[in-house]
Design a binder for these strands. Sequence first.
DNA 1: CCGAGGTAATCAGTACACTGACTATCTGAA
DNA 2: TTCAGATAGTCAGTGTACTGATTACCTCGG
Lengths: 173, 173
Amino acid sequence: MPALDLSTHPGHLARRLQQAHTLLWNTVVSEEVTSPQFAVLNTLAGQDGLDQRTVGERVGLDRSTIAEVIRRLVDRRLVDKVRDPKDGRRSVLRVTEEGEQLHRKLSGRTVRMNQIFLAPLGPQERSTFLELLRRVSDATEALRNPGAPVADVRGGQGQDQAQSVGHAAASSR
Amino acid sequence: MPALDLSTHPGHLARRLQQAHTLLWNTVVSEEVTSPQFAVLNTLAGQDGLDQRTVGERVGLDRSTIAEVIRRLVDRRLVDKVRDPKDGRRSVLRVTEEGEQLHRKLSGRTVRMNQIFLAPLGPQERSTFLELLRRVSDATEALRNPGAPVADVRGGQGQDQAQSVGHAAASSR
DNA sequence: CCGAGGTAATCAGTACACTGACTATCTGAA
DNA sequence: TTCAGATAGTCAGTGTACTGATTACCTCGG
């Protein structure tokens, strides 16, 4: 059995892509706050008063992981966490003033980072890339909870050229 | 400061893509062996007698992580690890008979998994997707050790249509 | 032959990411 | 009203993935 060429395996490339992103994040955006932590901060900056589960759902983290991430944010006083008096199971989350400042500062840097990250691609390719990433991720995500609305896979910005859709046939052979 | 839309951030999508892949791997390929573990097995199946550092380099893992992964493979008797008598610093790695059998069994499944993973995309899009993943990962990887040969970014299979290359201008603003 | 510098591996510490088990709390139906 | 089921969160365990420090070993110049 000859060894497979992993450079044609999307899973392997996905892992490498994420490693590359983490590396870039640490140098360009922040060494203090990680990308998932920023995602949580960003979600709460948009809407205060959510509970862990909801935030986790929005940024794509399960209950255990989101608990860890939020614990760190609370430790660093970037997020406040108080028991919901209306429902003793839930914790209500809120960004602190400090957290909001940090979010503002890092928001600009993340935009710059995205440019650097996608620099090897042309303008057309960039939007294609994002769309393909979204389609593949969403499709697999849909397997997890097969009743949820997928919120229009062919979403917003569709001025790309990779329009040869209408095929696929998953057919596991 | 309004919240950013993370669905346009490649880093966020990269993380979600990897999560999706891990989920699929566990259901389609194996719950016993992870994708990085298979990558190591696959590398060793292609060429016996490498040391940790080299294997790590090929599959894209740093020395600490590759040590962990290999420890698990050795624990499960899928890989043998012996001190190099010629050079007491190195450990020479070799796939066991059992590891080779497992590699054979899983190789077929990974191919099938790739098809399922990329099912949402058309044939053209699939090769485009792989190429873009490779280009972005390789470019960032190149920042890490700026003297290494990048081994031809425009690699093998280039029959796709995302050919508007020749641009980019990273320009952090 | 000896020590300085380089290299392979390990170790400690941090941070996602997931599963499965468990606790506390809430809600609705009998 | 009471308790069965659902839900939010925690905890334990496993597995990447990284940095920085340390250890063991090799090599080569003097």
